[in-house]
């Protein structure tokens, strides 16, 4: 019988937290910056306004939290998709490394950019 897995429990909690924040914030941000502004439906915000918002400490914390948790959300779901969807169970270790390594690298990049 397998042992109780605390790493899976932590991974699932982070996956869930990422699922909530990305579901709350990703659609509106993608809608604005990916569709509405590029298509010219509304004028994009001025650079000065963007900087004022992005330099606010609260925005920085929220953005970093959003990025880190969303990447951990991706890592969890993507590794399950590879394990099961593509039946790559034998490659478990490299897949986990790819997913969580990618999430950590992406989080560091986000931290450098957001606070840079």
């Amino acid at each position: 019988m397998a042992k109780r897995s605390s790493s899976e429990a932590v991974a699932w909690l982070l996956f869930s937290a990422g699922g909530v924040v990305s579901a709350l914030l990703a659609p509106i941000l993608l809608l604005l910056f990916g569709v509405i502004f590029p298509l010219g439906v509304l004028a994009p915000p001025e650079h000065a306004h963007m900087e004022a918002v992005l330099r606010h400490p609260l925005t920085q914390v929220v953005l970093l939290g959003l990025c880190v948790l969303s990447l951990l959300h991706w890592a969890h779901r993507f590794r399950y998709a590879l394990h099961e969807g593509l039946q790559l169970k034998r490659l478990r270790a490299p897949i986990n490394l790819l997913c969580y390594g990618g999430a950590i690298a992406g989080s560091l990049w986000a931290a450098v950019v957001v606070f840079g």
Binding site: L71, R77, A81
Partner: peptide, 23 residues
């Protein structure tokens, strides 16, 4: 639904690129 996570990851990349450009 499970594949949506790829686009969640893309959203993070796009967002960080936007912040980097603004900075």
């Amino acid at each position: 639904r499970e594949l949506s996570c790829v686009f969640v990851a893309w959203f993070v990349v796009y967002l960080v690129l936007l912040v980097a450009a603004a900075h």
